[in-house]
Computed example of a mutant assay.
Amino acid sequence: VQWVWGGFSVGQGTLNRFFSLHFILPFMILVLVIIHLMFLHEKGSTNPLGHNLHINKILFHPYFTLKDVVGFLLVLFCLMMMCAYFPYLLSDPENFINANPMVTPVHIQPEWYFLFAYAILRSIPSKLGGVLALAMSIFILYLMPIGMIKKSVPTSFNVAYQVLFWILVVVFLLLTWLGACPIESPYLSLAKPLTLIYFLMYPLLLLASWE
């Protein structure tokens, strides 16, 4: 944990590291998006129905291009409406309290989209183990496509895969809720089994998708 902090405690080195990460991360994501588009054009998208005939396939442009543009504009419209009329909709009221270096806030929590990872971090007593579990809870999403190299059953007709997927969705939502709860019982006790189920769901999904 010290190499993340840049010392024996959180300080200027920690701020420099995370500032650099926030600066470099968008460029890394941009590179991954470009690689994704390259593979999408070369290999094609997923085939939920399992048809291997090229006669049933359609071109990426203009069909998927127009669909993506419409989806992008809808999301952008919702974002602009929220920024213009409801700017504090997803904000935490504690963010408006003046910072006091002499007083630690009673309940510290990240943004809502990282609450599930924060719940996993809190559920593990070991500091190093919690940090590793937090990182793996996010990076495991990037490791999933590696397991899809083997021939897989179309998910539209795979009942076991669909059941496991919706269990994972429910576990994810419960962890998100627990991440916003205070650090006390029974919230910590509930987060531990849900953390175990969260990590078990991914190998089970891979096994269910293989033929």
Results as ranks from 00 to 15, higher is better:
Y113V: 10
K151I: 03
L164W: 06
F23Q: 10
A208E: 00
I146Q: 06
I138M: 07
E111W: 11
E94K: 14
F116S: 07
I34P: 02
L89C: 06
I149N: 09
N47W: 01
F86G: 04
I138P: 00
I55P: 04
F114C: 03
D92C: 02
L207A: 15
N158A: 05
I108E: 10
V131W: 01
L207M: 14
M201D: 10
L53R: 10
K67A: 15
S185K: 07
K57P: 04
F60W: 07
V106P: 03
H41P: 00
G13A: 01
Y88K: 13
L89R: 14
P193G: 02
Y161N: 00
W166V: 08
T14N: 04
N47H: 09
T46A: 13
A191R: 01
F96S: 02
M28H: 04
L175D: 00
T104G: 05
H54C: 04
G44Q: 06
I183K: 07
P48Y: 03
F199K: 00
L30W: 06
L141T: 09
L66C: 11
G44R: 05
P203A: 02
S91D: 14
W177T: 09
C78P: 04
S152H: 13
L164G: 02
H51P: 09
L40E: 05
S185W: 04
F72H: 08
I197M: 07
L66P: 03
L207H: 14
G129E: 06
Y142A: 15
F165P: 04
P62T: 07
A117H: 00
S137I: 01
F199M: 06
L174D: 08
L143I: 09
M81R: 14
L174G: 03
K43C: 06
F96E: 03
F72N: 12
L205T: 02
I35S: 08
W3H: 13
N56C: 11
H61S: 11
K192H: 05
W3A: 14
L121V: 01
A119Y: 01
E42D: 13
Y142M: 14
L73P: 02
H22L: 15
S189P: 02
Q2S: 15
I34D: 06
M144W: 15
L89V: 09
R17G: 08
T46I: 09
S189G: 05
L205D: 01
Y142H: 14
L15N: 13
L32A: 08
I97E: 09
A99C: 07
S123F: 01
L206I: 12
H22F: 15
C78Y: 09
N16M: 15
N100T: 13
L173A: 07
M136P: 01
F139E: 11
N16Y: 15
G71N: 12
W3P: 04
K127L: 10
V169K: 07
Y198W: 12
H107D: 14
D68L: 12
K43E: 07
P182A: 00
L168Q: 15
F64N: 05
M38N: 02
L207Q: 09
I138E: 03
F77Q: 14
T176C: 02
I29S: 05
N52M: 10
N158W: 09
V33N: 08
L178N: 03
F139Q: 15
P182S: 05
V131P: 04
